[in-house]
Amino acid sequence: MREVPRWKRASGWIDLRGRREGGLAFLLMRLTGIGLVIYLFLHLYVLRLLAQGPEAWDAFIAMAKSPLFLALDGLLILGILYHALNGVRVTLLGLGIGVPHQARLFWGVMALTLLMTAIAAYAIFTIAG
């Protein structure tokens, strides 16, 4: 509580030793949250190209169709889905609903996230590719 530098406190919530599903869910929630904030700024930065005329935008779209970029899209969807689905789980738990089932809910969130990401990835690569 005292004499702990601020940067060291962050290691407290990242440290997963001894933690179970709830702690893991919390950590993933934070990491995906940070990731989504970073993505939001990237997204705004890219949208700026729209103001620079059709050439700039088309050039970006061409790049966005590269397999590497599509894989990053898959990762983004993974993060969004986890954050959204776990968000529902956390909302319920935060109101004291389903607390005894929290670990099962977490694995449910994970399963659903992976399943939906797989479907999305399939769609991305078949449609875009």
Partner: peptide, 24 residues
């Protein structure tokens, strides 16, 4: 933030996570 670790480690049946939910 509903990490639920409090209830998972409680040795005395307190279940703080549920209590916080009820409190909210």
């Amino acid at each position: 933030h509903s990490a639920m670790e409090c209830t998972a480690v409680c040795p005395s049946n307190v279940d703080p996570a549920s209590a916080i939910g009820r409190l909210r």
